[in-house]
């Protein structure tokens, strides 16, 4: 319920921000309140109580896709934050850092995929192929 309230509270603010950002152009956007299977659809980020903090801190400088396509341990994510601080002007995250690291390590941990994975059977769209002339 709390999450819903936050989302609702944020809606008018976000509309205002969007307007500001796009110089008033009307654009088609994914509904920001849409959550499917624990994923915030508009960003692709895992949705939990620390989602908004992570979103605010990380996506002001880079795409959420840079998070969702990567996997690392807590130490690995910490290394990336240090790298961004050294080279990309990321400021000290102070008390927010452990929260962000917990979130990343929980939702984007590496899996042991071995030396070569099976083809992902779920993603294959089977189709009838007729012989070429």
């Amino acid at each position: 319920m709390k999450k819903l309230t936050i989302s609702l509270l944020l809606l008018p603010l976000m509309c205002a921000l969007c307007y500001n950002c796009t110089d008033g152009k009307v654009e088609t956007k994914i509904d920001d309140s849409l959550i499917e299977n624990g994923i915030h659809v508009a960003t692709g980020l895992a949705y939990d109580e620390n989602f908004e903090l992570v979103r605010a801190l990380c996506t002001s400088c880079h795409s959420a896709k840079l998070i969702t396509q990567n996997r690392a341990t807590r130490e690995g994510w910490k290394d990336m934050i240090v790298w961004m601080q050294k080279t990309q002007k990321l400021p000290d995250l102070s008390t927010a850092e452990p929260i962000v690291l917990d979130y990343l390590a929980k939702h984007y941990a590496p899996e042991d995929i071995g030396r070569r994975s099976n083809l992902d059977m779920e993603s294959i769209e089977w189709y009838e192929l007729s012989e070429e002339e």
Binding site: I6, L9, L10, L13, M14, L17, C18, C21, T22, E27, K29, I30, D32, A42, T43, L45, E52, L53, R55, A56, L57, C58, T59, S60, C61, S63, A64, K89, P91, D92, L93, S94, T95, A96
Partner: peptide, 26 residues
């Protein structure tokens, strides 16, 4: 709104303020 302390805000370069809430729009 988030109830989170934005401790980093003062460190951001002048004129560059994070939006963070506009992922699908950028």
């Amino acid at each position: 709104v988030l109830g989170a302390e934005m401790v980093f805000a003062k460190h951001f370069p002048k004129g560059l303020t994070p939006i963070g809430l506009l992922e699908n729009d950028i």
